[in-house]
């Protein structure tokens, strides 16, 4: 089992650095994981995205459709890539503590 350590905190992660147990997610976790995406500080827009994705995940057990993320948050896909360079399916999900979507995506 791999570990991701920030200061004195440590998280169990998979090989791509996704949180192993999404239930353990907190806002602090988001801040710590944002570092792995080269985001020094999460701003309001980041949080808007994270919170929506997190809310959807709690409702449906899965990340929302990319298209839905754009629509509900009002961000263009391009903008999301600017905020989270590895994109909605990877970057946002990682910071929001969701498992990585796999398949033909």
């Amino acid at each position: 089992m791999l570990e991701y350590k920030v200061e004195d905190r440590s998280y169990e992660v998979d090989e791509e650095g996704f949180l192993q147990e999404p239930e353990l997610w907190t806002e602090e976790v988001a801040k710590d994981f944002a570092l792995t995406e080269n985001i020094a500080e999460l701003n309001e827009d980041h949080w808007k995205l994270i919170n929506f994705v997190r809310w959807y995940f709690v409702q449906y057990g899965i990340a929302p459709m990319v298209r839905k993320v754009c629509k509900e948050t009002g961000f263009e896909l391009q903008k999301i890539y600017e905020m989270f360079p590895s994109g909605p399916a990877k970057g946002v999900c990682k910071v929001a503590g969701l498992p990585k979507p796999t398949g033909c995506v």
Binding site: M65, V66, R67, L77, G103, V105
Partner: peptide, 12 residues
């Protein structure tokens, strides 16, 4: 259909 069609872009 493949599930990516109702999840990912540009499949969507």
């Amino acid at each position: 259909m493949p599930s990516a069609d109702f999840f990912a872009t540009p499949h969507y």
